[in-house]
């Protein structure tokens, strides 16, 4: 994903080039440190090749280390049994890990989008500017915390709390809802899907909030003021002017958040419970493709088939993120991703 996606500087050119004379918002846009265009142009082509070369090299090395071992259709089945004593009966089915990845990333993404939309709107529209400035830097700060810190916090502080307080309470209150009817053995240790989703949500929120916030901020002041001048209430301006303007950046926020959520490894490994099964409720322990790799990789050097299976999981994960990004670029690229923050 281009870093232009989150750099507000990119927002400036969009409306101008399409419409000509949209009132400038340049007072908020920091100067581009690389604005010597000739220098950039000279460098951009060879430098631009570097990521591509890396990508091809990584995929190539992974393909080679997989020894192109064919696990058949069973690779997408549920049976995961790396039997070290009798490799002939070992089976490598990754279905439950794919499900774990999808469930954690999916739920975390939905929650994070709702939360960050609310946070972005309050930061830009409702809060007085000193408070908004402080809270903005605080949310940005959250994005910079290493994921292992979230993991430790989740494991040491939250897991006992989830196990003894929150999970039983949720199960008691919402047990009639599918997904909340877990038995006490499922939330015994506090680790599981719900804690992983919680941690992931907190990790994704700063990223998506930053995108949505900047896109809301890029709205020309005059548009908001003319709305108010026409007699619209603040809510109406928000609903009719500001949210439609910011809507275009939602797909890119979703893509960015998904990338973070599906690839997050260490923090999830510490809190998800590492059980290999079909989750029966949100309290179930589970595993994701990423946690499978981090947990099993050290043993894999002893068992070649396991190594090949893990490498193929890595390729699958890589393919998923590539497809997600390419689809994102294809459908939202011209507006949503490349020029984040540009309104309709």
């Amino acid at each position: 994903m281009s870093d232009g996606g989150i750099r507000p500087g990119a927002a400036q050119d969009g409306p101008r080039s399409r419409r000509g004379a949209v009132p400038a918002t340049r007072d908020r846009i920091p100067p581009n440190p690389f604005s010597r265009r000739t220098l950039l142009r000279g460098l951009s082509s060879p430098v631009g090749w570097i990521p591509g070369i890396f990508l091809v090299a990584i995929v190539g090395v992974l393909l080679l280390s997989s020894h192109f071992q064919n696990f058949g259709l069973g690779f997408f089945g549920p049976a995961w049994n790396p039997n070290p004593t009798d490799p002939s009966v070992a089976t490598y089915g990754i279905l439950y890990f794919v499900i774990g990845s999808a469930v954690t990333a999916g739920f975390a993404l939905v929650l994070a989008m709702l939360l960050s939309l609310a946070i972005a709107i309050s930061l830009v529209v409702f809060l007085p500017s000193p408070a908004s400035r402080v809270l903005t830097s605080l949310t940005d700060l959250l994005a910079g915390i290493p994921s292992v810190v979230y993991g430790i916090w989740g494991y040491v502080i939250l897991a006992p709390y989830f196990s003894k307080q929150l999970d039983p309470a949720l199960s008691h209150a919402l047990g009639w809802l599918p997904g909340f009817g877990g038995s006490p053995t499922e939330y015994a240790g506090g680790t599981g899907l719900i804690l992983a989703i919680f941690i992931l949500t907190i990790m994704v929120v700063p990223l998506t909030t930053a995108l949505l916030r900047e896109s809301l901020r890029a709205i020309p002041r005059e548009q908001v003021e003319s709305g108010l001048a026409l007699g619209a209430t603040r809510w109406e301006v928000l609903r009719r002017v500001q949210i439609p303007w910011a809507r275009r950046s939602i797909p890119s926020a979703v893509l960015l958040g998904f990338g973070r959520a599906v690839g997050e490894t260490v923090a999830v490994f510490m809190v998800i419970g590492n059980e290999v099964k079909l989750p029966t409720s949100l309290f179930s322990g589970s595993s994701t493709m990423a946690t499978l790799m981090v947990g099993q990789f050290d043993s894999a050097f002893e068992y070649p088939d396991l190594l090949h299976a893990l490498v193929e999981v890595a390729l699958l994960l890589l393919a998923i993120s590539l497809v997600v990004n390419l689809v994102g670029l294809r459908y939202f690229g011209s507006r949503g991703i490349v020029r984040v923050g540009v309104g309709p």
Partner: peptide, 28 residues
């Protein structure tokens, strides 16, 4: 499921990282 540094466990068996993780996991 045989024996080795990694084997298949019961679906209902939660996994913890390192001996230290087993101690705190069991405590919870």
């Amino acid at each position: 499921n045989g024996y080795g540094t990694t084997v298949k466990w019961l679906a209902s068996s939660p996994g913890y990282n390192g001996n230290g993780g087993m101690v705190s996991g069991l405590q919870n």
